[in-house]
């Protein structure tokens, strides 16, 4: 029983980190109507830039986190403006391929600079404590807390702010949004950057829990695909529920199956859901009303 509780707690932490990455992905999809294949690399960059800042500049963890997220925001904004935004006028498949290019560029750049050796980041919050039979660290609590906070924040921004309404208008009918005077390019770039920031935050938080590798981006992306399909493409609550579900499932199943099988769980879940409920767990969000 204790091991089940422990694995459930671990699953919650893992799931929240998935949820954060998936929310960014689904947000960008909701706005650009395009799968951003470089999303996982932005997550990986968040972790790698943090590790470099700590190792080479000797920055403390928290400062490194903030700087790394800011840098990834800049990088995201840059690629959003130079690659994604121009490509968004093309066929969705071309735009998606453009983001695949960014993804390849970034992961190979990191491989070139940092080599493939796994890296670790140490956080001052790795203090272990115990609740009943479950061992946790402050870091894990931070992941869960930040996950909840950020997802709630994104939800509020999208559904209850003027920015959210503009974003919705653009995703719904781009030309109509333009002729009523919305700066569609700027909103696109902002939304893409928001996605990058979410990915980076997840990256810096998780870097203290799991080891880093240049291919960690593609690893989490395959999971995020499963999550956003589970939760309904473009739905933020769906991304959270899907993320938690997958984290819990992966964690709990390691009790009964060897852990090298965990990557398959995402796809088993996905296949089962697609058979039972092809529209996703909670369906597509209805959008924003004024």
């Amino acid at each position: 029983m204790d091991i089940v509780l422990q694995q459930a707690a671990n699953g919650l932490v893992l799931g929240m980190s998935y949820a954060l990455v998936a929310t960014g992905l689904t947000l960008v999809f909701g706005v650009l109507r395009m799968m951003n294949l470089s999303h996982g690399e932005l997550y990986m960059l968040g972790a790698y830039i943090l590790s470099a800042l700590m190792q080479y500049l000797g920055l403390p963890y928290v400062v490194g986190c903030v700087l790394s997220v800011l840098l990834v925001a800049l990088i995201g904004y840059f690629f959003g403006m130079t690659v994604v935004q121009p490509a968004s006028h093309l066929e969705p498949i071309n735009a998606m391929l453009a983001t695949f290019g960014v993804s390849t560029l970034l992961s190979n750049l990191v491989l070139l600079i940092f080599k493939a050796t796994p890296r670790m980041v140490s956080s001052p919050f790795q203090v272990v404590f115990q609740i009943g039979p479950v061992f946790l660290t402050i870091q894990k609590l931070i992941v869960v807390g930040m996950g909840l906070l950020l997802n709630l924040g994104v939800y509020l921004v999208i559904h209850h702010t003027t920015f959210g309404k503009m974003i919705w208008a653009i995703s719904e009918q781009r030309t109509a949004a333009e002729i009523v005077g919305i700066d569609t390019k700027r909103m696109h770039n902002l939304a893409f950057t928001m996605g990058a920031v979410l990915a980076a935050i997840s990256g810096v938080l998780v870097s203290a829990l799991y080891s880093l590798a240049p291919n960690m981006g593609s690893g989490i992306m395959t999971k995020c695909f499963a999550i956003v399909v589970l939760g309904g493409l473009g739905s933020i609550p769906g991304a959270i529920i899907g993320g938690l579900l997958l984290g819990l499932a992966e964690s709990l199943f390691t009790i009964i199956i060897p852990s090298q099988w965990t990557p398959a769980i995402a796809f088993v879940l996905l296949i089962v859901l697609l058979i039972l409920k092809p529209e996703g767990l909670i369906g597509k969000s209805k959008g924003v009303k004024l």
């Binding site: 309404k165 949004a177 004024l290």
Partner: peptide
């Protein structure tokens, strides 16, 4: 709602 979108969102915020 359509007209409101136009009336409301066209301004610079």
């Amino acid at each position: 709602e359509n007209v409101l979108v136009a009336a409301y969102l066209h301004e610079d915020f």
